[in-house]
Amino acid sequence: MMTHYKYIEELLKRFFDGNTSNKEERELYIFFSGKDVPEHLKSYIPVFDFFETGMDKEFNTCRENNPKVKKLTPNYKKWITLTGIAASVLLLVAVFNKVIKNDGTFNPYEGSYIIRNGEKIADIELIRPELEATIAKVFKQQEKLNKILANVNPTDEFDRIKQEIENQYCELVNSFPDEITRKKVSEILNVECY
């Protein structure tokens, strides 16, 4: 019995140091809840009674005063899932459109139309000859305009050729020994050579 009390005292010491296992604590609770507690250890009975039942009471009181707060799950996981589903659906729709719509028939004039007497005609096969005639007419018009613009804005190639011709003329002019002949040749060729 004495050894048992010594064991209990040892356990008590370790209990208050926080070094007891659950099993050892359970032993202490059973001991102090029994009737054979020695006098010198009876002061510890209320302590183990508190630990056994008081903590539960306190916890329940606390729970009554503060209702349990629902644990929030991170919303971002939900949003990531929803975004992934939306992206997959969009990708499927895009692939579907490309595969189904790209059935091999390509119409280069798709979207073209004619308005005549206030009426819009969009049947490509019906107006195709007229569209092609318009393109041909516009092409000729653009050629004509490009010629006009070329006269106003000579290209670099044009300037280069012109300069080369003038250089050849000047070589010819300078090949004459006397100044009077050189002047006459310059007037005929309409160049100024220095």
Binding site: G111, I127, E130, T134, K137, V138
Partner: peptide
């Protein structure tokens, strides 16, 4: 007023590369 709108699409890109309105 008579109007014609010609849209020329590129076969590779399927995009309108030129639009001619007369």
């Amino acid at each position: 007023v008579e109007m014609s709108v010609v849209r020329k699409k590129n076969k590779e890109t399927l995009k309108v590369e030129q639009s001619i309105t007369t």
